[in-house]
């Protein structure tokens, strides 16, 4: 390089570095948002549903073994305190009407409030698992409600949804997983 050319190059060096860094940080920021959610949702996928022995909401009692009895099941984490659970209730009702087995996990709630809620909105669930102190939720990596798991015929978690289940999420992601593991839908 001639002295002149190299001087010109030096003038542009800071700008080049600045532009490169801008591009890098732009993509890093974009990636981060998705990665945080992915990382939180993926850990328990392909692991067995954690062991539990817990009361239901109707003087009943349930264990992990019931989730491994040859049916692909949706396990829906809900609470009467959770506003978004009301939002997804109509769509979950549609899925139940199509023959999708749905089990409720009543998370950090009281049985009284939960039963009132079910009276009002409708108990569409096959049964409920009462996780009053959030211990099962902790073993499931739950950090809010609603969350919905797809559990396969052997009781292995195959999918986890954080947030509301609606038509878009079901059609674009969940239905595929549900059918892939042998879940049945009445058309």
């Amino acid at each position: 390089m001639t002295p002149e050319a190299s001087k010109k190059f030096l003038v542009f060096a800071p700008l080049t570095v600045f532009l490169l860094m801008s591009v890098f940080f732009y993509f890093a920021l974009q990636m981060r948002e998705n990665r945080a959610v992915d990382e939180l949702t993926s850990v328990l996928v392909d692991k067995p549903f954690p062991d539990f022995q817990l009361p239901g909401l109707h003087n009943d009692f349930h264990t992990q073994a019931e989730l491994a009895q040859g049916q692909v099941t949706l396990v829906n984490v809900w609470g009467s305190w959770c506003p978004s659970c009301r939002d997804e209730h109509p769509y979950l009702t549609q899925l139940v009407e199509q023959g999708v087995p749905l089990v409720g996990m009543n998370y950090k709630d009281t049985p009284e409030a939960a039963l009132d809620w079910l009276d009002y909105f409708g108990d569409i669930y096959a049964y409920h698992i009462q996780d009053r102190d959030g211990r099962l939720g902790l073993n499931l990596g739950v950090y809010g409600a609603p969350e919905t798991f797809i559990v396969d015929k052997q009781g292995i978690i195959r999918y986890k949804r954080v947030g509301v289940v609606n038509e878009r999420v079901w059609e674009s992601e969940m239905k595929q997983v549900y059918l892939q593991y042998g879940g049945l839908i009445n058309e």
């Binding site: 990382e39 902790l138 990596g141």
Partner: peptide, 8 residues
């Protein structure tokens, strides 16, 4: 905790 919530 990592087994449940990931390295997050």
């Amino acid at each position: 905790l990592v087994a449940r919530y990931g390295t997050f």
